[in-house]
Simulated scan of single mutants.
Amino acid sequence: MLETVWFLLWGVLWAVYFILDGFDLGMGTIMPFISKNETDRRTIYNAAGPFWDGNEVWLITAGGVTFAAFPGAYAALFSAMYSALFLLLFALILRGVSFEFRSKVESDAWRKLWDVCHVIGSFAPALLLGVAFANIFRGIPLNAEGINEAGLLQLLNPYGLAGGVLFVIMFVMHGSIWLGIKSQGPLHDRAVNLATKTWPVLIIWAVLFVVYTGVETNTFANYLANPLLFVILIGAVAGMIAIRPALGAGRLWRAWTASAVGIGGTALFGVVGMFPRLLPSSLNDAWSMTIHNAASTPLTLKIMLTVTLITIPIVIAYQAWVYKTFSHKITQDDLDYEEAY
């Protein structure tokens, strides 16, 4: 029972991370295409500024849960995807440094250097996270010892890349809507226009990916065994569809919420489809890392659950305060503030 609770919590934490960090990764990805001047670029930085580091707390939490609750899966995951995870970490470091260093020197060349780092540090994580999770859904060639028998290039298979593209499109949509919420004037209009144009691409690619998932993986086995689980997929699709009418009505917060439902539902759809496996083996299902053979002791899981039930509400309350406090649009006064990016 505890293993199942932690599996669901593990999936929810990843979904929350994708929802929250997805919009600032998306904004960084679209920055070269949507910004026309220095004010636009600074608006994008400051639209993410109060939130991005708090959003990444959920990545650390999801990774920490994997390590503490399912150490066997953690070891196999970092062995199987070491190169990809190293690249992900390096890209996230680049992005974090770009926030802090960009405004330290009054030089166009200096700012352009960190803008490039920011774009790379936003696009690469979106792509790599999608590739990684698609490969996990598909199955990794783990042997009986839990060691990956393939390399980085094997992760760049068509299904893995399709997952990477899906994450990039979802995050671009998410980030465009958020930028529309936080910006004014022409930048706001361009952001909403980009989100509107991205929507049909997202719908088409999501449908193709779901069909591809049915062909390439056995994700649907759990859903066919328990049809009530299809509510997760229906919720994800409904969220994506609801984005467009909300955009048309100018209800950007509603559109962002719908996008969040689509992203969270997509993540949970894949996670629930793997149950009880955390890392399916494509070589032999008996070699998969499951909630049973990868979990910590029951005592560890009990202690961790107690701590989690105490601390997670505190984190949620703090982040809710941050989002409420900085929910206003970015103005020139915000950009002139000495602590602004």
Rank of each mutant, 00 (worst) to 15 (best):
T219S: 10
G160K: 06
L202V: 09
F275I: 04
H292F: 12
L13R: 01
L25F: 03
W58R: 01
T66W: 13
P141A: 07
A258F: 06
T300Q: 09
K329R: 11
T217I: 08
D333W: 07
R251I: 02
F101H: 13
L161A: 01
L129A: 10
S259T: 09
V57I: 10
V97S: 09
G160R: 06
K104M: 09
A317R: 03
Y159P: 07
H118Y: 15
N293D: 14
V192H: 08
V116D: 06
T4F: 15
G264N: 06
L228F: 13
I34H: 06
L127H: 00
L25T: 00
Y74I: 02
G262L: 09
D115H: 12
N148V: 00
G54V: 03
V168D: 09
D21T: 00
A91N: 03
V215C: 07
G185R: 11
F86N: 03
M27A: 06
E216I: 00
T219W: 10
H118A: 09
G264S: 05
L59K: 01
I147L: 12
A225F: 11
D115R: 07
A126E: 00
G164S: 07
L166G: 06
A75H: 08
W321L: 04
S98I: 01
T219M: 11
L152K: 12
A225G: 11
L229E: 14
P200M: 07
F220P: 11
L278P: 11
A295Y: 03
G54H: 08
W114Y: 15
A236K: 10
Q154F: 02
A124F: 07
K36W: 08
L305I: 00
L233F: 10
A195R: 10
A267W: 12
M289K: 09
T300Y: 05
A236W: 09
R251T: 02
V5Q: 10
T266K: 04
A91E: 02
D334I: 02
W321Y: 04
S103K: 11
L89H: 12
A246V: 01
G175F: 06
T308I: 04
I243F: 07
F220T: 04
T300F: 03
V5Y: 12
F123K: 15
A295F: 02
W58M: 01
A124M: 15
G26A: 04
H174I: 04
V315M: 13
I204Y: 09
V211Q: 11
I234Q: 04
G72F: 10
H174N: 15
G54M: 07
G214M: 09
S35F: 02
I303T: 11
A126W: 01
D333A: 15
I316T: 12
W321E: 01
V16N: 02
A162N: 03
F167I: 01
P32T: 04
R251Y: 15
G72E: 14
G54L: 06
I291N: 10
Y337S: 08
I19V: 14
L224E: 14
L127D: 00
T331G: 13
A195L: 05
A221Y: 05
L229C: 13
L224V: 08
M81H: 08
A206C: 08
W256Y: 15
V237N: 11
E3D: 10
Y212F: 15
P158E: 06
S281L: 03
G265P: 09
G11S: 04
V12R: 00
R42E: 15
Y45R: 05
F133P: 10
V271D: 12
D189G: 11
L229K: 15
M173S: 13
